[in-house]
Design a binder for these strands. Structure first.
Length: 425
DNA sequence: GACAAACCTGC
DNA sequence: CAGGTTTGT
């Protein structure tokens, strides 16, 4: 492992101090003029030297009010990013390994180059398309060249479809759905919901990711009766055992999310059981087969993006291990159904505590009736992006659990007009 | 049609 | 006992 140091800080005393980063150095927080997209934004003096086997740091405009990586990447939406050093997040997206960080106004990213085919590695070996050899990678080498889009390389799709032919910048904009004006949504929700208003102050920048449907579906199949740390572990094992190895950084190896074919293998269930998946092993294996057989595979899954929410939800619920909660998660986080509100016991508690005791009364658990009532309630309160608002509350709740809770908050109650109740779809 | 118990493992 | 689904009553 190499430790690099950014040299020549020069005169810019105001810039964040470059620190030693074991592998992923930080980009300097440079502000690009006005987002003119004029290609070479920083003259050659200010950009850090490229990492070994990684593209130079680049950025796109994205104020922190619109995105908080630490909340979005670690808030229970995705399980594939780790904070490799403070403020730096490394993970796999669209079949490649990225490191992300952000400054006040920019989202910074670098791509790590894939290792040479080594074949000394455990892999799925199943009916995956033959390995592409010698990927032609637009390697920035030491040169100057544009930081602008035109020179960016295309990606061979892995588990992900629909990103082929997109530039890295476009992939990120799509993944984070940067076209959605989050601040405006926050304002609207705050206006109609005083509890949201309180929470939102402490948790800005929580947006819903637009994830790959296959990855999202199978990740959330693993979440039943489970908690975050173990889920993360399981997903990592799943990728390691069934996904193509991409590269190694420090001591961590990164793998693509497995293809449906890889997960549909005959020995999948047994292997996953060995990996500690428990009864979920069968769900993963069976669902992979079912998606291939009855939903048109990965492409069919992806096409659910363009059908109505109820229809997509219903299709997902036919899969083993997929109930309404998991289906709603996938609808919201991969299938463009912003109105989908996943209701778990946490959200149920929140709903009862802050939004009225009549929600899901009489039930001892989150039954389908409770799910429907609470979903409809929040849709009527928050509107067509209700799922996004729910993500904010959920994230806040998670955080509260980990860190020192605001003990006060648990006892505050917020009044909500009763008229909001009982509307239905 | 709706609610309770089982299913696995770990914290 | 858990951020859920499935199965049986």
């Amino acid at each position: 492992m190499v430790i690099l140091r950014i040299r020549s800080c020069g005169s810019h005393a105001k810039l964040p101090r470059p620190e030693l980063q074991p592998e992923h150095r930080r980009p300097r927080a440079l502000s690009r003029g006005g987002g003119g997209g004029s290609g070479r934004r920083n003259a050659m003096n200010s950009r850090p030297a490229p990492l070994p086997r990684a593209t130079p740091w680049r950025s796109l405009p994205c104020p922190r009010a619109e995105l908080r990586l630490e909340l979005v990447l670690c808030g229970g939406q995705t399980f594939r990013w780790t904070e490799t050093s403070p403020g730096y997040w490394t993970g796999v997206l669209a079949g490649r390994v990225w490191t992300l960080t952000q400054s006040e106004e920019q989202l910074w990213y670098t791509l790590h180059e894939e290792e040479k085919e080594d074949s000394s590695r455990e892999e799925d070996g199943l009916s995956e398309p033959p390995q592409k050899k010698g990927r032609k990678q637009a390697q920035p080498d030491g040169s100057h060249a544009g930081t602008s889009e035109p020179s960016e390389s295309h990606l061979p799709g892995e588990a992900s479809q629909g990103v082929d032919g997109l530039t890295p910048s476009q992939i990120l904009q799509d993944y984070f759905q940067l076209h959605v004006n989050l601040s405006a949504l926050y304002q609207g929700w705050s206006y109609v919901d005083s509890h949201f208003r309180e929470v939102a102050i402490k948790f800005p920048g929580v947006r819903v990711l637009r994830q790959d449907p296959v990855e999202c579906l199978f990740s959330f199949i693993c979440t039943s009766n489970n908690h975050l740390s173990r889920i993360t572990n399981m997903i990592q094992h799943l990728c390691q055992a069934f996904g193509r190895r991409l590269c190694q950084l420090d001591t961590k190896t990164y793998h693509a999310f497995p293809s449906l074919q890889a997960m549909a293998g005959a020995d999948t269930e047994a292997r996953l059981r060995d990996l500690g998946f428990g009864y979920r092993a069968r769900f993963v294996s069976e669902s992979a087969r079912a998606v291939l057989k009855t939903l048109g595979g990965a492409a069919g899954l992806q096409q659910l993006r363009s059908v109505p929410y109820e229809q997509a939800r219903h299709a997902l619920c036919t899969l083993p291990g997929v109930g309404v909660k998991v289906a709603d998660c996938v609808c919201l986080m991969a299938l463009d159904k912003a109105e989908a509100v996943p209701v778990d016991t946490h959200i149920w508690q929140v709903a009862k505590r802050y939004y009225g005791q009549e929600l899901g009364m009489g039930a001892r658990s989150v039954t389908e009736r409770v799910h429907r009532e609470i979903g409809n309630f929040f849709r009527s309160l928050w509107g067509p992006y209700a799922g996004w608002a729910q993500a904010v509350l959920f994230c806040a709740d998670l955080r509260k659990y980990q860190e020192s809770a605001d003990p006060d908050a648990k006892h505050r109650c917020v009044k909500v007009p009763r008229s909001s109740l009982s509307t239905l779809t």
